[in-house]
Structures are given as structure tokens and as C-alpha cells.
Simulated scan of single mutants.
Amino acid sequence: MVALPQIAPMLATPGSLPPETVEDRWAFEVKHDGQRAIVYLPGDGTVTLRARSGSDITPAYPELAGLGSALGRPAVLDSEIVAFDSEGRSDFERLQSRMGLAGSAAKAARMAKIVPAHLILFDAVYLDHSLIRLPYADRRTLLEDLHLNGAHWSTPAAVVGHGARALEMTRTAGLEGVIAKRLTSLYEPGVRSRAWIKIRHVLTVDVIVGGWVPGRGRLTGLPGALLVGEWREGALRYAGSVGTGWSDTERTILAALLQAAAIDACPFDEVPEVAGARWVLPRLVGEVRYATRTRAGRLRHPSWHRLRPDLAPDDIT
């Protein structure tokens, strides 16, 4: 069995579409709302899936095991695990019911029948040898030539040029957006690169929860607002208060997580002037929608989007 190299995923930078004058130098892929996974195929019929954090999540997705026998050569592929809704759109909320089941094979098998996962393959970083020094266009050709399309995995096409049209098509279809990838770009493991640009239809950011403010009335004991921050220059900087966007179920789940993480000291580098604030260990990661930022970097009109159990605080530094 071949000892495959451990490769950290290359990350995209939030931004806007490349200018039309140079868009023929870029490919555009649909941005799917799922869990990033590096796929390791040693060529012996087995498969290992590793999350962005490097943790082994293979047991959580037993329906993806067949990919190991679909390719009879050593490979490392980049991908996104998704769960589709009734309209065929990736739905992170559905996928959440599948995440975190790596330690329970029986439950993972049951859930695989209820909420089947699908593996979106979009890059090849190793095929018999390392491909990270090859341009993106060449890696995509090699990936597509593998013809990996099955019931639980596929290799969607990437479109060269026509960025505005691709973005509008995703908007019409109710998808999250597109990722633009420079055709000449090399694969940069673990790097958030300007060679890959993610363009979403709404602005979002991954944040770290550092505190909360209890609600009142029917929300007594539940969070009325979350106090969130971002790592900047080795410190957790306060980014604002998020007080909307949860369902009742999500609010209850957050309450339990916050109570379990309670601490006495503020984790932010500067204590925000928020009355009634309670502090927590900065270990919960969430995704927040927002309109823009203030000059001080605070989020304007933020709204909670989702917890990110697939990310640790160190993953978003």
C-alpha cells in the first residue's frame, strides 16, 4: 500500500468576480454548502476522508466507502461533502445531522439511509505522484479523466470564463455562489490564496463565540445575543454582537453549548462594553451573515447563519 502524503486543503479568499477583460484566465465552479474533505485513496480499495482540521471523518460517511474501489490507483483528491435538499441544492443544515458521527458506526449507517451524503470532487493533488506544482487547468483535466461519477460522488464541470453568467445562474438556482480559480494557479496546501476567490451572494464570515447576553421573557436562560470575534495578530478581537438568525431549536442547542463553556474572564483582547455579558471559552465557531463592516472592523447588521462544528478556532486564523 502506498504511503500517501498528508495534504492540507487550499483555501479561497472572499472577493468579487475577476474583470471581464481577464476572465478567460479563470475557471468558475459552483460553491457548495458542505464539509470540506481531503480524500485519500491508497489504491487498495480503501478510502480515508479527512476534514479541514485533519481529523478522520471516514466512519461518519459509510456510503462513500465505495469510492475506494472505483479508482485502482493511489490518489489524493480535494472535495466537498454535501447533503442535497429536495431541489438538488446542497443544504448544510441537512448535512449537520451527519457530522460528528465518526465515533458511532451504527448511527452513521442509519443516518446514511435517511440523509445520504454526496461527494463533490473538484481537484486532484496526487495521482501516483504529487500534482501540487501543476497548474489548476492541468489538475482539473487529470481529475475529469478519472471519470469518477457514481451514486454518491461526482465531478461537476468547471466553466472557463463567463463568470457573471455563472454567478447569476447560481443565484437563480438558489445556490451559495461560485469559486473563481486562476487557470495557472498551483495548489497551495493550507494557504488562503488569492488564486482562488469565493464569490457569495451574501457576505458571510466565520467567527468565534467569546460570550453571550441572556435573553428576557420567554428567552430567559437562552441567548439573546452572541458576542463574537476573530483572531487578529494573535489576539481575539471583538467583532460585534449577533442577536438574530436562530430558530428556537438552534437557540436551545447554543444555550447548552454556552453553559458548558462558561468562564469568568473575558476572552477578547479588549473587554467590550456590553451590559450583562457572560463569557465562554473561545471554542465555538459559527458563520454570520452581515451587510458591511465599520472602520473598526465591527460587523454591521450581523445575523446568525449556522454553527460550524466542522471547524475549530485555529482553522479560521
Rank of each mutant, 00 (worst) to 15 (best):
W279N: 04
A109P: 00
E29P: 06
G103Y: 12
E168I: 02
R36Q: 10
G297E: 09
D315I: 05
Q96D: 11
P62I: 09
R308I: 03
L236F: 05
V242Y: 01
R237G: 02
R165C: 06
L226R: 06
L183G: 08
Y136E: 13
R52E: 03
R278W: 14
G243M: 04
G45H: 07
G45T: 06
D264M: 00
A8Y: 13
H147D: 14
I57K: 02
R98L: 06
A108N: 06
I208S: 00
A70I: 07
G217V: 00
A265P: 02
A60S: 13
S90A: 15
I208D: 01
Y290R: 09
L236G: 06
A195T: 11
V205N: 01
V280H: 01
R182L: 12
P223M: 04
V202H: 08
R36E: 09
A262N: 07
A260T: 15
E29A: 14
S303W: 04
G66Q: 06
L67A: 08
D269E: 13
A296D: 14
V209R: 05
D138Y: 10
H147K: 14
R52D: 01
L142T: 07
A255L: 00
K181W: 08
E93N: 15
G229T: 02
G224Y: 04
A195I: 01
R216M: 03
P42I: 11
R237W: 07
A37P: 08
V178R: 01
L219S: 11
